[in-house]
Design a protein around this nucleic acid. Structure first.
Length: 562
RNA sequence: UGGGACGUCGCCAAGUUGGUUAAGGCACGGGGUUUUGAUCCCCGCAUUCGCAGGUUCGAGUCCUGCCGUCCCAGCCA
């Protein structure tokens, strides 16, 4: 069962086109494919493509294949195949067939012979540099290869011997015979097959010739009866070649290629080349580093499939290039988690607070709703004791007038408890505040008649005796500039934000949170949405902050400071 | 000095075959509710569609010219 697209799905040109094709009777169902090359992990840009490719058949009837487009033996690995399958499934999609381009190598070889027999392909014995030089430039036409008019029989013989392993790597290639003067460079006799003696993760050493992307992709689409082959804009120039091959080959169906713009997000990088560098050079902890826009990274960070899908749907599908703010992704996570994340209290940077009129050595269990708007999530009991921790940031000795939290002599409500007054500030020798002494107003205890007394602020807290210690990891954008790859003169690595990870070693959590496991999510009230990280162990929990709450105060405070 | 594509509010993005006042979301501003400065709820937010002409009773939608941005010269995908 595939995840439904959100009901607010806007109209877009691909949906319109498919609807029209169906109306025109071109197809009775829509068949798409998601065709990753297994040489890296999937990222949020792939998610956009995945959502599109799965949503169309779900909406109109039909199905989607997962096809590993691995025609280049040099760079593909099984672990990437495994991660891709895991990520697509996690996003909520079931593919109909799991396909591999190499499964079509035999058919593709026959197709190549077909082209040769019809005088549409030839074996070129020139080296790569010569072929490149002959290709011409953007403004000048190319020149014909001296091997271009080789007789069919000779081409056939040579190509068969290429396959049989009769020639060295790079000794010759098979080229389509189209037009060396074509304004579209892709049509200037593109290479269809090259010789590569490398072990392929799928076909082993069965082949020493491998088809190029252009020769493999469209034909694979046709073999799978793909009706709409959806890809990104950079393949627009390849469409004439895609169509040419489909037209001249005895393929079982005639797919069409439709291009849309790829997803860009600010303050991050999305190209596989750059992501690979970040991982291999150790700038991040791995493909699933929570700061990465990879699906695995986002998952570990705390993103939900629902939020990612909603994001991908809402940004739309067009042909215009756009850059979406990372904050837009975060907003969708908040929107999703706000309605379903259980609330908890956790103090990230603890400050000791003593309730001077609270009975010593006594524990009072207070009721706290798990969700302020949704009573179905139930209640829990949280322990209150004489000594508690509050957030350091919730106390200011020299507070500006709009500061609604604790200050000397001031009052504040303890969430789910009662109102307290700050009577005394205790400092150490360095003048650092190390403890607050406060008195509570018992009349204002939650559920009591006096509980409706209003104070400006409410802060969270945790019983010192009962709190669980945890490590909490806070994440910021990986790069310090909106377009890290934008300036080719500067290595994007230079733009890394060295503050992108902050580790808080001594956070204190409401009891029970230590047992939480990856896959669960919580709102730590007033602090954001947090998820357990797989690095955590029993007795030593680790939480990731997926995203903060909207923070109007932080904005106001910034303005006040100018 | 080639070819392909794109240009509607700060960011996305709808705009049927040209037809009255240019959807929606986000952001932003204002107000209300609130034991999360969260959530939620109201209200506001493009006389204008890259620019300049033209056709027309009427153009974001048609025509012409210009400007800007992106992609293409891998035996990568």
């Amino acid at each position: 069962m595939n995840a439904p697209e959100s009901p607010s799905a806007p109209a877009h040109f691909i949906r319109t086109r498919i609807a029209r094709d169906l109306e025109d009777g071109l197809h009775t169902q829509v068949v798409t494919r998601f065709p990753p090359e297994p040489n890296g992990f999937l990222h949020i840009g792939h998610a956009k493509s995945i959502v599109l490719n799965f949503a169309m058949p779900t909406e109109f009837g039909g199905y989607t294949n997962l096809r590993f487009d691995d025609t280049n033996p040099a760079r593909e690995e099984q672990r990437f195949i495994d991660s891709i399958k895991e990520d697509v499934a996690w996003l909520g999609y079931d593919w109909k067939n799991e396909c591999y381009a190499p499964d079509y190598f035999e058919t593709l070889y026959e197709y190549a012979l077909h082209l040769i027999d019809h005088g549409l392909a030839y074996v070129d014995e020139q080296d790569a540099d010569t072929i490149r030089a002959q290709r011409g430039t953007l403004t000048d036409a190319g020149v014909n290869s001296p091997f271009r008019d080789r007789p069919v029989a000779e081409n056939r013989d040579l190509f068969q011997r290429m396959r049989a392993g009769g020639f060295a790597d790079g000794a010759m290639v098979l080229r389509a015979r189209i037009d060396m003067a074509a304004p579209n460079i892709n049509l200037r006799d593109p290479v269809l097959y090259r010789i590569r003696r490398e072990h392929h993760h799928r076909t082993g050493n069965d082949w020493c010739i491998y088809p190029s992307y252009d020769f493999a992709h469209g034909q694979s689409d046709a073999i799978e009866h793909i009706t709409h082959s959806l890809c990104t804009l950079e393949f627009e120039d390849h469409r004439p070649l895609y169509d040419w091959l489909i037209e001249h080959l005895p393929v079982p169906s005639r797919p069409v290629q439709i291009e849309f713009s790829r997803l860009n997000i600010d303050f991050t990088v999305m190209s596989k080349r750059r992501l690979t560098r970040l991982v291999e050079e150790g700038h991040v902890s791995g493909w699933d580093d929570p700061r990465l826009p990879t699906i695995a990274g986002l998952r570990r960070r705390g993103f939900t499939p629902e939020a990612i899908r909603a994001f991908c749907t809402e940004i739309g599908v067009t042909k215009s290039e756009s850059v979406i703010p990372f904050s837009e992704l975060e907003r969708h996570l908040r929107e999703d988690l706000n309605v379903r994340a259980p609330r908890r209290m956790a103090v990230l940077r603890p400050l000791k607070l003593v309730l001077t009129n609270f009975p010593d050595a006594e524990t009072e269990w207070l009721e706290a709703p798990n969700h302020p708007q949704n009573p179905d999530l139930g209640l829990r009991r949280v322990p209150m004791t004489r000594e508690i921790f509050i957030e350091r940031d919730d106390f200011m000795e020299q507070a500006p007038k709009k500061f609604f939290r604790l200050k000397p002599g001031g009052e504040v409500r303890l969430r789910n408890a009662f109102i307290i007054r700050c009577d005394e500030v205790i400092k150490n020798g360095d003048g650092e505040v190390i403890e607050l002494r406060c008195s509570m107003d018992p009349e204002t205890r939650s559920g009591q008649p006096g509980a409706d007394r209003k104070v400006k602020g409410t802060i969270h807290w945790v019983s010192a005796e009962h709190a669980e210690r945890a490590q909490v990891r806070l994440y910021d954008r990986l790069f310090g500039v909106p377009h890290p790859g934008g300036d080719r003169a500067v290595d994007f690595i230079e733009h890394l934000n060295d503050q992108s990870l902050e580790i808080l070693a001594d956070a204190r959590l409401e009891p029970g949170l230590g047992e939480a496991r990856p896959g669960q999510f919580f709102q730590f009230e007033r602090m954001g949405y947090f998820v357990p990280d797989p690095d955590g162990r029993p007795g030593a929990p680790v939480f990731n902050r997926a995203v903060t709450l909207r923070d109007t105060w932080a904005r106001l405070e910034k303005q006040l400071r100018g």
